[in-house]
Design a protein around this nucleic acid. Structure first.
Lengths: 406, 406
DNA sequence: TGCGTTTTGTCTTGCGCCAGGACAAAATCG
DNA sequence: CGATTTTGTCCTGGCGCAAGACAAAACGCA
């Protein structure tokens, strides 16, 4: 039961039915490949003759290939269809506080080549450096094969304009990012924040066997905590592009001071820094100071997890406590949007076995129904950085997206 | 950029384009009535000839009427179109802890007749009583004109099955509600919880001049606090039908004990009972006991508001504090889903002038961007109970809903 | 008064798409 | 070897939008 948005709609043209059905066919082939035309017709609930024309379109467009059938049952053997690797490439750029990474990959997220450098914090210099490294990656024939660029920025972004609204770590405010870089590179480009991008990666490149790809939340735990929410097959970006900021919903109004300046944000309990501070037995603010001072080396979250796996009781206790707080925030997400599942990404997933029990206990303690408490919580264990995959997803998504109708 | 849900889709048929465009036309006529065919063609961006056929359909179906044009500019005078009142009726039933109300109204929410009685808490007896009162309302010709029944239940509902999952006040758990009542009444029936229903009322029956009707949140403050979220023109119900439970997201984990048994829920700071307890200067639990004890009469929220308007400083202080906590919870909603606006309903909106400043201050203190802090917060000041209007919306919505495509 | 202009609403032709069924092709089964 | 089953294609029919022609109904101006 969807209501028309009278300010933003698109009437159906005579090509709309075909467009819709072609995309349905393409998605079903991707989902169930390899499958025959007759199977596709059964799954879609249309005549085989319709499938013939749809598949002809897709084959002619180079999106789908036929494969000889080996399996035999009874009757005429089917021609099996599968998605044809397009050979097109995507450039993903992940800008983080300390390091910027570039990945050239195919549209399924299989890497071709990657590069990285220490982030410079002046936007102009950073853009220049990114342009230089991008050109190095896109030399020769790759340039023509590259279909677009997806940029992940550590902060809030207006995806429509590509302007970085606020990136506190970088001290950026209203920095136009897409326009200058896209002009230099001469490629279509989209800018997104990390949680939304990670959600897009799971949505467009993830296996649907892992769970629902149209209704879930992606929680990314790193320096901060951000959430990308997908509902009805669409990312929830929010009216002013700041949805998913569960990281700044407080667990306790008088809790520790967060990097945003407020008290008690979920992020200030579960960020990597918070866990490290907990391990060190210091308040969060002190840990932050230590970082800046950089005299004696402060252990990283990876160090703490390694210690826990080696049996260090203090590390284990710190991570268990983080698990509890992680669970409390996940319960907030469940209460708010009740997703079909939650995927958690970040270094901390390496400590899943340590945190899991406390996390689930916390979730159970703050959810209202057994069904909600049973929401699957899945660690994201892709080997490639989910942020970079998100950049790829930004480029790959249009290929499989449904046309806007109404 | 929407992804297909491979488990729940619907291919386009040859009638789909027409269905989509007819509904667009219907919605635009409703939105901008009265308007001419030529205006409609311009707004839709299609040829006038298409509009001719679409409008002919709508007029033949009795959905739209022509009106003589009085205004003249230049050229041939237009024939103005408007929505024809269908004459159809809806029965809305609002079940609350103490009282159950029935409203018979037209599909725009204009009341015809209403009835009420003290709620009986046994489901079977309640259904029997509702059936009796419904039959009294639906006597004679009304019966044929009534298109359906919308029931509002104080608790969590699975709208697909019409089973009440959990209504703690009523002590109901997994009570099948729709099937027995619908069978007795012999009418199509939908069951919803109050916040979702109120959101549906604003979505389908509200004026779009008040703000976005496809992206907003409705917060209902009464005995509890619930939220209905609308995104992309659809209500967010959640994978297990428990989305929008912001009322049970904690402001502080060690706060007052909520009716759900947990500590610090937003609801336990801002429900009517919480405000009354604050006025009485007692902890929430005591106030709850007083209610049960029912010795001396406990003041109601309406009493407290009246006192505040009379200048009672304690009442003013209590409401201002409620305003602060209300704002803190609204900030959580803004952080989570960043709606284009938030509508607040409930008795407490009568004290809007008292609470407003503190509420806005609290919102500003816990939001991340100026744009988010500026989210319009609107008191719902419809004279008819928004819950009953929600029941009407459940029946009226299909008339204007877009067909599902893909 | 009469003619040109403007705007509205309808009609006609053209092309594209799905619905439905017929039909050929290619395998298995008895 | 023929009947059966299954796949994939082809063809006709009805319906939709695209595009433009055209009639209708007003106004402006000489």
């Amino acid at each position: 039961m969807r209501k028309l948005n009278p300010a933003n709609f698109r009437p159906a043209t005579r090509a709309t039915s075909r467009d819709v059905n072609r995309q349905i066919a393409l998605n079903l082939i991707r989902e169930h490949q390899p499958l025959s035309r007759a199977d596709l017709a059964r799954r879609m609930g249309v005549r085989r003759s319709v499938i013939t024309t749809l598949v002809t379109d897709l084959v002619d467009a180079g999106a789908v290939v036929e494969a000889a059938s080996t399996e035999v049952r009874r009757g005429r053997p089917p021609t099996l269809l599968s998605i044809r690797p397009s050979g097109e490439l995507a450039l993903a750029i992940d800008i983080r506080f300390s390091r910027t990474t570039l990945l050239l990959s195919d549209l399924d997220g299989r890497p071709v080549e990657s590069r990285g450098f220490d982030t410079v914090h002046d936007p102009e210099q950073l853009i220049a450096r990114i342009a230089k490294e991008s050109r190095a990656l896109l030399k020769g024939a790759r340039r023509a094969r590259c279909k677009g660029v997806g940029v992940i920025v550590p902060g809030m972004v207006d995806p429509a304009t590509g302007v970085v609204l606020n990136a506190p770590q970088m001290k950026w405010r209203d920095v136009p990012f897409r326009q200058p870089l896209a002009r230099v590179l001469g490629l279509p480009m989209q800018v997104e924040n990390a949680p939304v991008a990670c959600a897009l990666a799971k949505m467009w490149l993830g296996r649907s066997s892992a769970g629902d790809t149209t209704d879930f939340a992606y929680v990314i735990v790193s320096d901060g905590v951000g959430v990308g929410v997908v509902k009805h097959g669409q990312v929830v970006r929010g009216a002013t592009a700041t949805a998913g900021e569960f990281g700044h919903i407080p667990l306790t109004l008088t809790g520790p001071t967060c990097s945003c300046g407020r008290q008690g944000c979920w992020e200030s309990y579960t960020s990597n820094l918070a866990t490290v501070a907990r391990y060190l037995g210091r308040p969060l603010d002190d840990a932050r100071v230590v970082r800046r001072g950089s005299g004696a080396r402060r252990p990283s979250i990876t160090d703490v997890i390694a210690l826990a796996h080696d049996g260090d009781q203090r590390a284990i206790a710190a991570l268990e406590e983080t698990g509890t707080y992680l669970g409390l925030g996940l319960a907030n997400i469940i209460c708010a949007v009740n997703p079909a599942r939650i995927v958690v990404g970040g270094e901390i997933t390496a400590a899943w076995d340590v945190m899991r029990a406390d996390m689930q206990r916390a979730i159970a303690s703050r959810t209202l129904t057994p069904a909600a408490a049973a929401t699957p919580i899945q660690p994201d264990q892709t080997t490639i950085s989910p942020r970079l995959l998100g950049g790829v997803a930004l480029v790959a998504a249009p290929r499989f997206a449904m046309p806007q109708v109404a």
